[in-house]
Amino acid sequence: MDFKTSPALYAIAGAVILFVLGQSVFFLVKAWKQGRALGIDKAKLRNAVTSSALFTIPSALSVLATVIALAPALGLVIPWVRLSVIGNLMYETTAAEAAMEALGHEGGMAVPVTDPEVYAGVAWVMTLGICFSLIILPFLAKPIHKKFMAASQKEEAAPADTNAPADEKKKRSLNGFINKFATPAIFIGLIGAFVARAIIGGGKPETFGDGAGVLSIITLVVAVVVSIALEVLAKKLKLTWLEPFVMPIGMIVAMVAAIVFFNVLPEDIATLEWRG
């Protein structure tokens, strides 16, 4: 039996996830009670629960799709824990790739991990790489939150002068850049690394799927085009329910396209990877 499918590993993962689930239930109960104490209508609170649950389902399915997509290389247990606790679609895939590369696992995500030592190493790297926010949160969250609470109360007490001229210099301050563009720029750098590899990255000549080629370009183009088309469609026709489904549909359609083109194209073209 493959060690990655051992029931004991599922039990370990289940225990960690149950612990975190308990925290969510605790905060939910406390916030609900406080909401009632503040006089917020029960129907309003119930509506927040219902709308959040419905809002979450499509995105949760895309998280599930990522867990399943990582499973051929890592099994289900590591991606399950990593995407249930702190995890994030982008970070986990990147972390898994970095860990495999550093631990000498050749072929990356295209090749299943069969060495328990590499498997455990990947679990360590993915866990330690992502946990920093939990280390700094106890120190930073309270002062930041209090500062903004005080600032917004002050703002409400003294409404802004709408006739004040815009200060162009202030508008382009470093703080303004950090607030508005730093996170998108970091995300684009991160996502772009995988996009660039799918266009021109090299792999091992004997491994299919680890380097850029006909199929990686087709998959990438289909994923981008389908996602953009769906996003435009959702915006133009005001289909707000469609928006959370855009990413999972784009990903699944692209994977289906990979299967179709692999079978339709002549073998030497379908398996062509220009840089190995």
Binding site: A110, R197, G209, T219, V221, V226
Partner: peptide, 14 residues
């Protein structure tokens, strides 16, 4: 499954 990364990051990046 061999092309999961272009599919994931293409859709996420779009």
């Amino acid at each position: 499954f061999a092309q999961v990364l272009p599919a994931l990051f293409g859709a996420l990046g779009a």
